[in-house]
């Protein structure tokens, strides 16, 4: 799956895993992994024993209190967009930035071209797009609008401060 960082497609060293990995037939892959929060909480101890990095994936249904209190523990936090219309992830990203989280904030899930600029404005530093939705022209989305009225998490200042 293509990963965008700084508006460019880059190599992705992380593997997102799901509950299959923890089932009897499954195996947690080697390397750096992203684990959904519920699984992470459930398998905290075995995951802590790994040599590679472990990140979490959260979504709008998760209680983020614990996460926000232990931000330095995570090198990367993925925020999932389970459906196109679910906009909670935009607010979650802003909360992470406000809590001075310094790791990668990655968008995953149902992500089309038309939200890329909004994601960047809300503080996402990486955006993962599924193979079937990705097209190189998508990157134009960042340039479609050259100015905004309101401040967010990017460097744009509110129009009344410009």
């Amino acid at each position: 799956m293509p990963l965008l960082i700084n508006r460019k497609v880059v190599e992705d060293n992380w593997t997102l895993i799901n509950d299959d990995a923890f089932s009897e037939e499954g195996a947690v892959p080697a390397g750096d992994i992203i684990v959904p929060l519920a699984l992470f909480t459930e398998h905290k101890e075995s995951l802590a024993a790994r040599n590679n990095q472990v990140a979490i994936q959260v979504n709008g249904n998760d209680d983020l209190t614990q996460v926000l209190e232990n931000l330095e523990q995570f090198p990367l936090i993925a925020i999932d967009f389970p459906a196109f219309r679910d906009g909670r992830g935009f607010s979650i990203a802003r909360l992470l930035v406000r809590a001075e989280y310094k790791g990668e904030i990655r968008a995953t899930g149902d992500i089309g071209q038309d939200r890329l600029a909004y994601m960047e404005r809300c503080g996402f530093t990486a955006i993962q797009i599924s193979d079937d939705l990705f097209k190189p022209e998508m990157l134009n989305a960042f340039e479609e609008m050259s100015n905004y009225y309101q401040s967010a998490t990017d460097s744009v200042r509110a129009v009344y401060h410009q």
């Binding site: 906009g87 935009f90 939200r115 909004y118 609008m145 905004y148 009225y149 309101q150 967010a152 509110a158």
Partner: peptide, 13 residues
């Protein structure tokens, strides 16, 4: 109107 137009966080309430 200005603040809410194309607000990046509140387009998918």
């Amino acid at each position: 109107r200005q603040w809410s137009s194309l607000h990046p966080e509140f387009a998918y309430l």
